[in-house]
């Protein structure tokens, strides 16, 4: 089975704010694709990412994930515990503000997703795997540093390592270059894209940056909760 992701007539309403964040969005993403979500603020990019992450449930419609490792997930009908498992095994996140845990070292931050899976993950030694990945990302001399001791570019590389360490088939990235200067941003994005390609990981990235979006295989424009162009 190959990885596929499909949304069918997915809507998301926030009745308390009287907002329709997504309106009947249908979308299919194949395994290994790099998809950029673009659009103005409030168009529904983050809502779509949250739905794909299983942090929110759609008000209507279906989100179906076929994963070679985990089978089929119908996100709208999963329980809270099942959604947690889904996030733990199938998804990696990269945030605009890195969101590393300030009280953990670089190594500990990266190991965390593997530790969560205990012995279910084939990488038996989380520390060794994390060190290897950090080395691959050029951070071998920063493993025992705390996040506060790193630069923005380094922080985002740690975040990418954390997103990839447990080999998820899907990476969700929310403005990964938004908090970086253009040089660092480009380097980080290239790294992210390369790593995802090498591992056959699907990458869905929300961004405002035209340059960043240009690197994607596919760009989807959202406006007022609708997909206006793909």
């Amino acid at each position: 089975m190959t990885f596929t992701l499909s949304l069918t007539r997915v809507s998301k309403k926030f009745p308390q704010h009287n907002v329709d964040a997504l309106r009947e969005v249908s979308l299919e993403i194949a395994g290994g694709q790099f998809v950029a979500l673009m659009g103005p603020s409030g168009c529904g990019k983050s809502t779509l990412l949250n739905l794909l992450a299983g942090l929110d449930k759609p008000s209507s419609g279906e989100i179906l994930i076929n994963s070679p490792a985990g089978g089929q997930y119908r996100l709208q009908s999963l329980t809270e515990a099942e959604l947690t498992q889904y996030r733990r095994l199938q998804v990696g996140f990269v945030f605009q503000f890195f969101n590393l845990l300030p009280t953990l070292t670089v190594l500990e931050n990266v190991m965390l997703p593997l530790q969560l899976q205990n012995k279910r993950h084939p990488k038996a030694d989380p520390k060794k795997s994390a060190r290897a990945l950090l080395c691959e990302l050029g951070l071998s001399n920063r493993v025992d540093f705390y996040p506060a001791q790193l630069s923005g570019g380094q922080l985002q590389r740690v975040a990418i390592a954390r997103a990839l360490i447990h080999d998820p088939p899907l990476i969700l990235a929310d403005e990964p270059t938004g908090n970086l200067d253009s040089v660092s941003g480009e380097a980080v994005l290239t790294l992210l894209k390369t790593l995802c390609k090498e591992r056959g990981v699907t990458l869905v990235m929300a961004t405002h940056s035209q340059e960043a979006a240009q690197q994607a295989d596919r760009i989807i424009y959202l406006h007022d909760g609708h997909i206006v162009s793909r």
Binding site: R87, V91, L116
Partner: peptide, 8 residues
């Protein structure tokens, strides 16, 4: 962050 990472 932990919730994003799959903490129950």
């Amino acid at each position: 962050i932990l919730k994003y990472l799959g903490f129950s």
